[in-house]
Design a protein around this nucleic acid. Structure first.
Length: 228
DNA sequence: TAGGCCATCTGGTCCT
DNA sequence: AGGACCAGATGGCCTA
Protein backbone atom coordinates (compact mmCIF):
# COMPACT_ATOMS: atom_id res chain seq x y z
CA UNK A 1 0.00 0.00 0.00
CA UNK A 2 1.33 3.33 -0.96
CA UNK A 3 1.41 5.70 1.96
CA UNK A 4 -0.14 8.51 -0.01
CA UNK A 5 -2.96 6.41 -1.24
CA UNK A 6 -3.52 5.04 2.18
CA UNK A 7 -3.65 8.50 3.59
CA UNK A 8 -6.08 9.51 0.93
CA UNK A 9 -8.30 6.59 1.67
CA UNK A 10 -8.06 7.26 5.34
CA UNK A 11 -8.93 10.83 4.75
CA UNK A 12 -11.92 9.92 2.68
CA UNK A 13 -13.16 7.35 5.05
CA UNK A 14 -12.59 9.55 8.00
CA UNK A 15 -15.03 12.26 7.20
CA UNK A 16 -16.76 12.50 3.90
CA UNK A 17 -16.93 8.86 3.09
CA UNK A 18 -18.50 7.99 6.38
CA UNK A 19 -20.86 10.88 6.11
CA UNK A 20 -22.01 10.03 2.62
CA UNK A 21 -22.12 6.36 3.33
CA UNK A 22 -24.61 7.08 6.01
CA UNK A 23 -26.63 9.32 3.78
CA UNK A 24 -26.55 7.34 0.59
CA UNK A 25 -25.39 3.95 1.73
CA UNK A 26 -22.67 2.02 0.03
CA UNK A 27 -24.21 2.84 -3.28
CA UNK A 28 -22.71 6.27 -3.19
CA UNK A 29 -19.34 4.66 -3.72
CA UNK A 30 -20.26 1.82 -5.93
CA UNK A 31 -17.49 2.16 -8.43
CA UNK A 32 -18.14 -1.32 -9.56
CA UNK A 33 -20.91 -0.58 -11.95
CA UNK A 34 -21.86 2.03 -14.37
CA UNK A 35 -18.51 3.38 -15.26
CA UNK A 36 -18.96 2.02 -18.64
CA UNK A 37 -22.22 3.81 -18.87
CA UNK A 38 -23.59 4.18 -22.27
CA UNK A 39 -22.31 2.52 -25.35
CA UNK A 40 -18.76 1.18 -25.28
CA UNK A 41 -17.66 4.04 -27.43
CA UNK A 42 -18.80 6.56 -24.93
CA UNK A 43 -17.33 5.24 -21.71
CA UNK A 44 -14.93 2.45 -22.46
CA UNK A 45 -13.59 0.56 -19.47
CA UNK A 46 -10.08 1.84 -19.73
CA UNK A 47 -7.72 3.74 -17.45
CA UNK A 48 -8.39 7.31 -16.62
CA UNK A 49 -6.18 8.70 -19.33
CA UNK A 50 -8.05 6.78 -21.95
CA UNK A 51 -11.28 7.94 -20.46
CA UNK A 52 -10.21 11.49 -20.67
CA UNK A 53 -9.46 11.26 -24.32
CA UNK A 54 -12.57 9.33 -25.06
CA UNK A 55 -14.58 11.70 -22.98
CA UNK A 56 -13.17 14.60 -24.86
CA UNK A 57 -13.96 12.90 -28.11
CA UNK A 58 -17.45 12.22 -26.92
CA UNK A 59 -17.85 15.74 -25.73
CA UNK A 60 -16.65 17.09 -29.01
CA UNK A 61 -18.92 14.79 -30.82
CA UNK A 62 -21.86 16.02 -28.85
CA UNK A 63 -20.65 19.54 -29.16
CA UNK A 64 -20.59 19.20 -32.86
CA UNK A 65 -24.17 18.20 -32.78
CA UNK A 66 -25.11 20.97 -30.50
CA UNK A 67 -25.02 23.54 -33.19
CA UNK A 68 -27.70 21.73 -35.03
CA UNK A 69 -29.43 20.85 -31.80
CA UNK A 70 -30.43 24.42 -31.46
CA UNK A 71 -32.85 23.72 -34.21
CA UNK A 72 -33.64 20.20 -33.27
CA UNK A 73 -32.78 19.42 -29.70
CA UNK A 74 -33.80 15.80 -30.03
CA UNK A 75 -31.52 14.95 -32.86
CA UNK A 76 -28.69 13.99 -30.57
CA UNK A 77 -26.72 10.84 -30.18
CA UNK A 78 -28.33 10.19 -26.84
CA UNK A 79 -31.79 10.91 -28.07
CA UNK A 80 -31.36 8.56 -30.96
CA UNK A 81 -29.99 5.89 -28.67
CA UNK A 82 -32.84 6.29 -26.30
CA UNK A 83 -35.32 5.78 -29.04
CA UNK A 84 -38.79 7.21 -28.88
CA UNK A 85 -39.05 7.70 -25.14
CA UNK A 86 -38.03 11.32 -25.37
CA UNK A 87 -38.48 11.70 -29.05
CA UNK A 88 -41.77 13.43 -28.58
CA UNK A 89 -41.64 15.63 -31.59
CA UNK A 90 -41.14 12.74 -33.92
CA UNK A 91 -43.48 10.29 -32.28
CA UNK A 92 -46.42 12.41 -31.33
CA UNK A 93 -45.37 12.96 -27.72
CA UNK A 94 -46.39 15.88 -25.54
CA UNK A 95 -43.99 18.24 -27.21
CA UNK A 96 -45.48 17.58 -30.61
CA UNK A 97 -48.85 18.79 -29.35
CA UNK A 98 -47.43 22.13 -28.33
CA UNK A 99 -47.45 25.13 -30.58
CA UNK A 100 -44.48 25.42 -32.86
CA UNK A 101 -43.31 28.49 -30.97
CA UNK A 102 -43.25 26.68 -27.64
CA UNK A 103 -41.69 23.63 -29.18
CA UNK A 104 -38.90 25.66 -30.69
CA UNK A 105 -38.27 27.35 -27.37
CA UNK A 106 -38.25 24.05 -25.56
CA UNK A 107 -35.74 22.58 -27.97
CA UNK A 108 -33.53 25.61 -27.57
CA UNK A 109 -33.64 25.26 -23.80
CA UNK A 110 -32.87 21.57 -24.04
CA UNK A 111 -29.85 22.23 -26.21
CA UNK A 112 -28.62 24.87 -23.82
CA UNK A 113 -29.03 22.57 -20.86
CA UNK A 114 -27.23 19.81 -22.70
CA UNK A 115 -24.36 22.15 -23.43
CA UNK A 116 -24.26 23.22 -19.81
CA UNK A 117 -24.06 19.65 -18.64
CA UNK A 118 -21.32 18.91 -21.14
CA UNK A 119 -19.36 21.85 -19.77
CA UNK A 120 -19.90 20.54 -16.30
CA UNK A 121 -18.62 17.13 -17.33
CA UNK A 122 -15.62 18.69 -19.02
CA UNK A 123 -14.84 20.46 -15.79
CA UNK A 124 -15.15 17.20 -13.92
CA UNK A 125 -12.78 15.60 -16.39
CA UNK A 126 -10.36 18.40 -15.74
CA UNK A 127 -10.66 17.72 -12.07
CA UNK A 128 -10.07 14.01 -12.56
CA UNK A 129 -6.96 14.76 -14.56
CA UNK A 130 -5.31 16.47 -11.59
CA UNK A 131 -6.28 13.92 -8.97
CA UNK A 132 -3.25 11.67 -8.70
CA UNK A 133 -5.14 8.60 -7.67
CA UNK A 134 -7.38 8.71 -10.71
CA UNK A 135 -4.57 7.73 -13.04
CA UNK A 136 -3.85 4.25 -11.82
CA UNK A 137 -4.12 1.84 -14.75
CA UNK A 138 -6.33 -0.50 -12.79
CA UNK A 139 -8.76 2.15 -11.66
CA UNK A 140 -11.75 2.95 -13.76
CA UNK A 141 -12.97 6.40 -14.39
CA UNK A 142 -14.04 8.01 -11.17
CA UNK A 143 -17.71 8.66 -10.78
CA UNK A 144 -18.80 12.23 -10.32
CA UNK A 145 -19.34 11.89 -6.60
CA UNK A 146 -16.05 10.06 -6.15
CA UNK A 147 -14.23 12.72 -8.13
CA UNK A 148 -15.58 15.42 -5.88
CA UNK A 149 -14.83 13.51 -2.71
CA UNK A 150 -11.30 12.66 -3.77
CA UNK A 151 -10.68 16.22 -4.87
CA UNK A 152 -11.90 17.55 -1.57
CA UNK A 153 -9.69 15.23 0.43
CA UNK A 154 -6.74 15.82 -1.83
CA UNK A 155 -7.05 19.52 -1.16
CA UNK A 156 -7.26 18.87 2.56
CA UNK A 157 -4.20 16.66 2.40
CA UNK A 158 -2.24 19.26 0.46
CA UNK A 159 -3.19 21.91 2.95
CA UNK A 160 -2.12 19.65 5.75
CA UNK A 161 1.17 18.87 4.06
CA UNK A 162 1.78 22.52 3.46
CA UNK A 163 1.17 23.28 7.07
CA UNK A 164 3.62 20.60 8.11
CA UNK A 165 6.20 21.94 5.70
CA UNK A 166 5.83 25.35 7.23
CA UNK A 167 6.34 23.86 10.63
CA UNK A 168 9.40 22.08 9.38
CA UNK A 169 10.84 25.22 7.85
CA UNK A 170 10.18 27.04 11.06
CA UNK A 171 11.87 24.26 12.94
CA UNK A 172 14.93 24.39 10.72
CA UNK A 173 15.11 28.13 10.92
CA UNK A 174 15.57 27.82 14.64
CA UNK A 175 18.99 26.28 13.96
CA UNK A 176 18.03 22.79 14.99
CA UNK A 177 19.53 19.80 13.28
CA UNK A 178 17.38 16.93 12.24
CA UNK A 179 18.62 13.58 13.42
CA UNK A 180 15.88 11.51 11.92
CA UNK A 181 14.45 11.58 8.41
CA UNK A 182 11.13 12.62 9.83
CA UNK A 183 11.27 15.19 12.60
CA UNK A 184 9.02 14.85 15.57
CA UNK A 185 6.89 17.65 14.24
CA UNK A 186 5.94 15.44 11.31
CA UNK A 187 5.57 12.24 13.23
CA UNK A 188 1.80 12.14 13.21
CA UNK A 189 1.74 12.15 9.45
CA UNK A 190 4.97 10.49 8.45
CA UNK A 191 6.63 10.89 5.11
CA UNK A 192 3.32 10.89 3.33
CA UNK A 193 2.51 14.23 4.87
CA UNK A 194 5.25 15.76 2.81
CA UNK A 195 4.79 13.62 -0.27
CA UNK A 196 1.22 12.45 0.00
CA UNK A 197 1.08 10.92 -3.44
CA UNK A 198 4.64 9.95 -4.17
CA UNK A 199 4.72 6.74 -6.10
CA UNK A 200 0.98 6.49 -6.21
CA UNK A 201 1.06 5.44 -9.82
CA UNK A 202 3.31 2.56 -8.91
CA UNK A 203 1.01 1.18 -6.30
CA UNK A 204 -1.09 -1.71 -7.48
CA UNK A 205 -4.78 -1.55 -7.38
CA UNK A 206 -4.70 -4.48 -5.07
CA UNK A 207 -2.71 -2.43 -2.62
CA UNK A 208 -5.19 0.35 -2.86
CA UNK A 209 -8.06 -2.01 -2.38
CA UNK A 210 -6.76 -3.64 0.73
CA UNK A 211 -7.19 -0.92 3.24
CA UNK A 212 -9.32 1.99 4.06
CA UNK A 213 -9.61 4.01 7.17
CA UNK A 214 -11.14 1.24 9.21
CA UNK A 215 -8.71 -1.30 7.92
CA UNK A 216 -11.32 -3.20 5.94
CA UNK A 217 -11.54 -3.50 2.18
CA UNK A 218 -12.68 -0.23 0.79
CA UNK A 219 -15.94 -0.13 -1.06
CA UNK A 220 -14.47 2.79 -2.93
CA UNK A 221 -12.21 0.44 -4.82
CA UNK A 222 -14.28 -2.65 -5.17
CA UNK A 223 -14.13 -2.02 -8.89
CA UNK A 224 -10.51 -2.97 -8.99
CA UNK A 225 -9.60 -5.37 -11.72
CA UNK A 226 -6.70 -6.93 -9.93
CA UNK A 227 -7.89 -8.45 -6.73
CA UNK A 228 -5.81 -8.19 -3.59
C1' DT B 1 -31.86 -9.39 -12.67
C1' DA B 2 -30.87 -5.63 -9.46
C1' DG B 3 -28.24 -1.85 -8.51
C1' DG B 4 -25.32 1.91 -9.93
C1' DC B 5 -24.13 5.56 -12.96
C1' DC B 6 -25.10 8.40 -16.54
C1' DA B 7 -27.31 11.59 -20.27
C1' DT B 8 -31.18 13.88 -21.40
C1' DC B 9 -35.63 16.16 -20.96
C1' DT B 10 -38.46 19.09 -18.36
C1' DG B 11 -40.55 22.61 -15.46
C1' DG B 12 -39.56 25.74 -11.88
C1' DT B 13 -36.84 29.45 -9.86
C1' DC B 14 -33.48 33.01 -9.73
C1' DC B 15 -30.54 36.35 -11.87
C1' DT B 16 -29.06 39.88 -15.29
C1' DA C 1 -37.26 38.34 -21.70
C1' DG C 2 -33.65 35.29 -21.90
C1' DG C 3 -30.22 32.58 -19.80
C1' DA C 4 -28.31 29.93 -15.88
C1' DC C 5 -29.10 26.80 -12.41
C1' DC C 6 -31.44 23.12 -10.15
C1' DA C 7 -33.86 18.87 -9.12
C1' DG C 8 -37.04 15.20 -10.49
C1' DA C 9 -38.19 11.79 -13.91
C1' DT C 10 -36.97 8.56 -17.34
C1' DG C 11 -34.56 5.15 -19.77
C1' DG C 12 -30.07 3.04 -21.44
C1' DC C 13 -25.87 0.60 -20.45
C1' DC C 14 -22.82 -2.01 -17.56
C1' DT C 15 -21.32 -5.02 -13.76
C1' DA C 16 -21.85 -8.27 -10.00
Amino acid sequence: MNAGDENLLKSISNDTLLDLTQRYGQSAFGFGAGHGTGSPGRYPLTPAADFLSSQTAKSNESGGEQTSDDDDGFDTLESRKRGSAFDDDKHGGPLAKKPKEQRSLRLSINARERRRMHDLNDALDGLRSVIPYAHSPSVRKLSKIATLLLAKNYILMQAQALEEMRRLVSYLNQGQTITSPIPAALAPFGQAAVYPFSGSTLATCAEKCTTNYSGTPSSLFKHCNDKP
